[in-house]
């Protein structure tokens, strides 16, 4: 077990190093002065330029530059934005929670919907329920996020006027940002109309979350169905049935715990897809998250923001993958023992 964790952490360190190398090479290759690309300061004065050279060791070999680049980024210095010279790190701290919030809610909905439906599809294998759910999930999987978001805005936002079409919270509510998660911030704040603020926040959340949840939910249904089918045909299920156990007990005590592990590992792989569609969703619903910020930065050729966004998003995916890997091993008895712990 510990050996396995050590291997995973080792892998994590090297993956992150390669990620930094790629971003560093990208910054070198981009047009413009390297000092400007790294620090984000446009037209630096002589003193500023010397400071940057000193900071990033630009007068030394490329390896020293690479190492000091990693050092700066790990210490939270991501340079300043090209366009408004604001420190990127602060901006990111403000925007990242909004994206994570959206992703967590979408993932929760996808799991709450996908797991039971996947189980139902597997239990009614090749019957009406199975075909219906498979067809629905295929439709859900094939609908492009940007189209679905726009249609939702047109129908629920403009025609029916049920839900607000943009933003995180109505400007009427002056909620101070502490954690970045709207609902928690409302709870922490001392505004007067908390109940109304909650309602408003949830109304703002519904459309982006559901739009974002469609694809993961479809994926979860399909994966759950496949792994459940596999487990339901396993010997120990037959043995449990032959012992006269109740079918529900067989499904929930034996088949599901075994099926859910591959489902969770597959979902982690879907995280990068989820982040990508979250960026699109943010743009459509003007959700003040990291995706919208990044896409704007791409239009402005704001290299420091782009490099910071690449680092943070990729880093987030890697961290979650490693954690879920370790958790998966810790919960699978067969793989917990050392000889199975190796990759």
């Amino acid at each position: 077990m510990w050996f396995y964790i050590a291997r995973r952490v080792n892998l994590f360190v090297f993956t992150v190093a390669v990620l930094f190398l790629l971003v560093f090479v990208m910054l070198n290759a981009l047009p413009g002065e390297l000092a400007t690309n790294l620090s984000g300061i446009q037209n630096p004065t002589m003193a500023q330029y010397d400071a940057i050279v000193n900071q990033y060791q630009l007068d030394k070999s490329w390896f020293n530059q690479y190492i000091s680049f990693i050092k700066q980024r790990i210490h939270g210095d991501f340079g300043v934005s090209f366009s408004d010279a604001k420190p990127i790190y602060d901006e990111m701290l403000r925007l990242l929670p909004a994206t994570i919030e959206l992703c967590i809610y979408a993932m929760t909905i996808a799991l709450l919907l996908g797991l039971p439906l996947g189980i139902i599809a597997a239990v009614y294998y090749k019957k009406f329920g199975d075909f219906f759910l498979l067809g629905t999930s295929l439709i859900g999987y094939s609908i492009p996020v940007f189209w679905l978001g726009v249609i939702a805005i047109m129908y629920f936002g403009l025609d029916l006027q049920w839900l607000p079409v943009a933003g995180k919270l109505n400007l009427l509510y002056q909620v101070e940002q502490v954690t970045g998660f709207t609902l928690i911030d409302i709870y922490l704040s001392d505004i007067q109309y908390k109940q109304l603020a909650y309602q408003d926040a949830i109304a703002h959340l519904i459309m982006p979350t559901l739009t974002l949840a469609v694809i993961p939910a479809a994926v979860v249904i399909r994966i759950t169905r496949t792994t459940m089918l596999e487990e339901l045909n396993a010997n120990y299920i037959k043995a449990a049935q032959a012992r006269g156990q109740h079918p529900l007990s067989v499904i929930f005590h034996h088949a599901l715990p075994n099926a859910i592990q591959p489902v969770l590992s597959q979902i982690t792989l879907q995280l990068s897809t989820l982040l990508t569609s979250a960026m699109v969703t943010e743009v459509i619903f003007s959700w003040p998250g990291i995706g919208q910020w990044l896409i704007q930065a791409t239009y402005q050729q704001n290299y420091t923001i782009i490099s910071a966004g690449v680092l943070v998003c990729a880093g987030f995916v890697i961290v979650v993958t490693v954690i879920s890997d370790i958790l998966l091993i810790a919960t699978t008895p067969r793989r917990r023992s050392a000889e199975y712990g190796s990759v």
């Binding site: 010997n235 043995a239 032959a242 005590h253 715990p257 075994n258 067969r334």
Partner: peptide
Amino acid sequence: IAMVFQEPSSSLDPND
């Protein structure tokens, strides 16, 4: 009626 299967280790839930 009870039944004993071949491959006994796979007749037990590996997760339990």
